[in-house]
Amino acid sequence: MPADPIIRVENLSAGYDGAVIMRNVNFTVNRGEVFVILGASGGGKSTLLKHMIGLYQPLTGRVFIDGDDIVSAEGEARYAILKKIGVMYQSGALFGSMTLLENVRLALEEYTALDDDAMDLLARTKLRLVGLDAFAGHMPAELSGGMQKRAAIARAMALDPMILFLDEPSAGLDPITSATLDELILRLADSLHITFVIVTHELASIYTVADRVIMLDRRKQGIIAEGDPKVLRDTSDDPWVRQFFRREAAVEPA
């Protein structure tokens, strides 16, 4: 695949309350790839993700989404960028007072001029994609954790974004549900050419879905490895990176 960056993170430094978590982080995500952000718990993965979707303001640096900087964009320009992305949060973050269908419909109601029937049909097709069309009328609280996450993916896809960000899609799920999610990700990437940015530390899932990974480390305040996960597992110079990919117990990292 020729390199065609859709996200470019430039010199990003982030932190809160005076503590710097990452310093001068640079990387790109190519169009159509499944890109995974890895790292130990508390390593700043979710923080990096929230900077990439414009929720947090970085200390320095810029994040270009399809050519536009989300850090400095305001007003209409910002909405234009946000329409290109969809986000699935760790908890699903479905709106608890709405049914699944209403959750998916919300963005359509706000941004399109479609009539009611059309919006219903569109929302149903999105639920269909994640296998939940039979639960369209259910409230989020009536569903299992895995279903909520799938519904959250359907909601994130409501406006057919170019990029989907998934925060820990398999956390807290059994292996079968989590494998189903992996399969869903691959299917969506193949059929709709969506670019995925996924935060996770499920090794099995990484080997299945990831085209490329970056690995964050809090002590080094940045990226310590980048590339194909299987290659990193076998050839990385960093003992800690190799340990991570082989799932070995911690020897204090150098």
Binding site: I85, A93, L94
Partner: peptide, 13 residues
């Protein structure tokens, strides 16, 4: 707390 506000924000709402 449930990140629903974040979800609204990233949906541009």
């Amino acid at each position: 707390v449930n990140e629903e506000l974040n979800a609204l924000t990233t949906m541009g709402l």
